[in-house]
Design a protein around this nucleic acid. Structure first.
Lengths: 153, 153
DNA sequence: CGCATTAGTTAGCATAGCTAACTATATCGG
DNA sequence: CCGATATAGTTAGCTATGCTAACTAATGCG
């Protein structure tokens, strides 16, 4: 009689169901949050890229595109929008004039942090029912997904 | 010395951090999945609306817009796209000629289920590291978020 | 009947995703 | 050193999705 460690195998049927539910939940959660983020005047792609810059430090356009999992032309336009709104500053690489370095401006950093505050207030207003235990469960799930996304390929 | 039930209060700082991480994870997860869904030829909004129709039954345009948390003009165009691809069928309400009833076609139902299968295979290929325990944690988190979204207002 | 309300559509704007094709710069081989 | 090749970003043009404002058509109320 073989006995495998029960934690090693996640049944496919379960995985299918969870994948679909996560997909749906992600879509609808983002739709809610997007409404609030719209106050800032910047779209979701801009805010996400700005977040990477604020928390991960300056990046070249290619690095930023890779971090955001989009193609360079897409990021080029996102960055152009951020620059137009004065949320980032751009300098050319002195060693390689093809490269550009993108970093958040003071205004950009400020806006992102305002957005965080705004989001928390919005969520807090709707999260009265969540216990610390449930929040910890969400945090753990976020950690799992973060790891999953990091190790994707 | 007062002692409150520890499960009743989720600290604001925690909530902020979790909210931001969920936001980021949702964005990046959707970007990954979207790549796969692109195979189907339908965009994410179309697939999400189709999913609501397949699993929730026929809806009027307004109901569908409400379910998807978008404005009627947006859903009008999404449905037009689905109709153009023959993924839904539309009939007028005989009692109220202003209303339209939208239901998935056989092709639409089939495409959605193919998409599910495709998604699971994609995820399964990248989920080798997930244990049944971890999957259960994700399932629980999805459940919490589903409830949260349902009771939002 | 007439007029307000309701359901959906149309028009027009912005963001965001893509591919293909272009520009500019760097690098490498001879 | 110079020409070919490779790399970094941008531009152009398509599609999809979000919005608001304004329109059309149908309902229904007084």
């Amino acid at each position: 009689m073989k006995k495998v460690k029960p934690e090693e195998i996640a049944p496919q049927a379960e995985t299918l169901a969870v994948a679909d539910r996560l997909h749906s939940v992600a879509i609808h959660l983002l739709r809610r949050v997007r409404r609030q983020d719209a106050v800032s005047g910047a779209g979701p792609a801009q805010l996400s890229a700005l977040s990477v810059l604020v928390f991960g430090g300056p990046k070249t356009l290619g690095d930023l595109a890779a971090a955001e999992q989009v193609k360079p032309p897409t990021m080029s336009r996102v960055v152009a929008g951020l620059q137009r709104s004065l949320l980032v500053e751009i300098t050319r690489d002195p060693r390689d004039a093809r490269r550009i370095h993108i970093r958040p401006s003071a205004k950009g950093t400020h806006l992102l942090q305002q957005g965080r505050r705004h989001r928390i207030e919005y969520l807090a207003a709707h999260l009265g029912s969540l216990t610390a235990t449930e929040l910890a469960q969400l945090s753990m799930a976020a950690g799992l997904l973060e790891k999953l996304l990091r190790d994707w390929h």
